[in-house]
Each structure stands twice: as C-alpha cells, then as structure tokens.
C-alpha cells in the first residue's frame, strides 16, 4: 500500500514538473507572439527605425540580421565542414587531435559576450574593421564554427562504414571517397545542423554589441554599390541587428512606443528563429528520405 502511494506521489510530481515546464514555455511563446504580432504590419517591417518618435520600423535591422547571418554562414560553414571532415576521417588518436577536440569544446562553451570582447579587440581594433558587418560576422564565425565542426563530424561518423569500404575497395582515393560518398551521405545531418545554427546566429546579440555595433546608417535600398556608406551591401558599415535592436530599444530607447517596438521585434525574431528550426527538421527529413528511400 505504502509502496503504491509513494509511486503515485512520485508520478504526480513528475507530471507536475512537465506541466509547469510546458506551461511556462508555452506561455512565453504565446505571450511574445500574441503581444508582438499585433504590432507587426507591413509598415513596421518596411520602414526605418526611429530614435525619438513613435512609429519606427525594423526594415534595416531585419536586413542587417540576414546580411550578417549570410556572411557568417559563408565563413563558418565551409571551414566548419572541413574541420569536421578532418576530425571524422583524418585525425589519428594523439595529442594533436586531443588539442583540436578540446579547442572545439572551449570555443563552443565560451560565453558570447567573451566572443564579443575578442571580436572587439581583434577584428574591430587590431584589424581596423571598426564596428561593421564583417567584424560581427567574424565574431559569430568564432561562435558558430565549433557547432558546425561537431555536427559534421557526427554526421560523417554515422555514415555506415560499409559505404566507405565500398568506395575505397574500388580504388578511389580517400579524399575522393570523402567528397563523393561520405559528405553526400552525411549531407542531411550537416544541413540540419547548419540551419539550426542559423537560428542561433539570427538571435545572437551579446557577441554583436561590440562588433557590429548599435547603430545603422540610413540605408538606401537603391544604392547597391557595396562601397557606398549608405548601401545596404556595404560590409564595412556598422549594423544593428534585430536582436540587438530589441536590447537597445529596451535599455536605451526614449521613443514613446518602446514597448510596442520591442514586442513587435521580438515576435518577428521568434518567428524567423522558429522558421529556421522547423525548416531544419523538415529539410533534413526530406533529404534523408530521398537518399535512403527506394526509387
């Protein structure tokens, strides 16, 4: 009897844990979306932000977020995939490999503000890039690299060894086997990982405060010369992203509709992050089925 009672109490406790957690998290998401989406309309998405008056939008911030995301992925994806290939296929057990693995671990557990400080020191100051898209993207590369390295290594390791043997036994070099057999087979996993990391980059703010900066020039979306200061494409201009905007508006904003802007921006941010996450899973599954499925 006693035994059963304990069991019942324990079950209740676990169920309440799950209920509390789920309720909290669902409330959070619901709050942001319901509160924020009412602020979001075409005008909000397509107008410039305002520093003192009501009615500012997030056009430039949204553009900057995507720009930095793309530059970051262009830098970190190839580097990370190659590094992951090294760890999965070429690294021999030994000191050097241990050092690489420890490095990946250290980089992936660095607080993002520390990455931001490093970016400030090296990219902004020493390299003279100033607060810029490129400095921000480089900092985020440091932050994203270990994630892609890991995801690539895991995906390649999970390719059945018989696939690799098949290729090697046909007199194909190891490198060509990697390129034509292992990486294609690992591709769904790698792509899923990259898309998930894209969600993380899109939402990151702390590492960008001191690297991409807190302000944006008045961008002119008809000036496509990347060296023009007001060109959206200029990678050397400072660029406030959407997540940084939320933080800045909240802590320094003086416009009357601070709350509305923050809520609207957060809703947009969350929606994009969700899109990245969901796409990652869906795309991963589709490609996986395509590759392994018959016909």
């Amino acid at each position: 009897m006693n035994r059963r009672l304990t069991n019942k109490i324990a079950t209740t406790v676990f169920v309440s844990c799950a209920v509390i957690m789920t309720a909290t998290l669902v409330y959070l998401l619901g709050y942001i979306l319901t509160n924020g989406l009412s602020e979001v309309d075409m005008d909000f998405l397509t107008s410039d932000s305002s520093s003192a008056m009501a009615g500012g939008g997030i056009k430039n911030q949204l553009w900057n977020s995507f720009y930095i995301l793309i530059v970051t992925l262009l830098l970190s994806a190839p580097l990370g995939v190659l590094g992951g290939i090294y760890l999965a296929e070429y690294a021999r057990p030994g000191k050097l490999t241990n050092v690489i693995r420890t490095s990946v671990e250290v980089l992936s557990s660095l607080p993002s503000i520390v990455v931001g400080m490093f970016g400030l020191l090296i990219f902004v100051q020493y390299m003279g890039l100033g607060y810029s898209i490129i400095a921000g993207a480089l900092a985020l590369t440091v932050f994203n690299l270990p994630i892609i390295v890991r995801v690539t290594e895991d995906s390649i390791r999970s390719v059945p060894v018989k696939q690799k043997n098949a290729s090697l036994a046909l007199g194909i070099t190891h490198w060509h086997t990697v390129k034509t057999v292992l990486v294609p087979a690992a591709f769904p996993g790698i792509l899923t990982g990259i898309l998930l990391s894209a969600g993380r980059i899109f939402g990151e703010a702390a590492a960008l405060l001191f690297t991409a900066g807190l302000s944006t020039n008045r961008l002119q979306f008809d000036t496509w010369n990347p060296f023009d200061n007001n060109s959206p494409l200029n990678p050397f201009r400072s660029a406030e992203t959407l997540s940084v905007h939320i933080w800045k508006v909240n802590s320094q904003g003086i416009m009357p509709d601070v709350d509305e802007i923050a809520a609207g921006s957060a809703a947009v941010l969350i929606i994009f992050v969700l899109i990245f996450n969901v796409t990652a899973r869906v795309v991963g599954n589709i490609i996986f089925n395509k590759i392994t499925g018959s016909k």
Partner: peptide, 9 residues
Amino acid sequence: VFQEPNPFP
C-alpha cells in the same frame, strides 16, 4: 566484394 551488399545509395 563484401559480406553485406553495400551499393551506394
């Protein structure tokens, strides 16, 4: 040729 058939996918 290996024990388990291992065609490329």
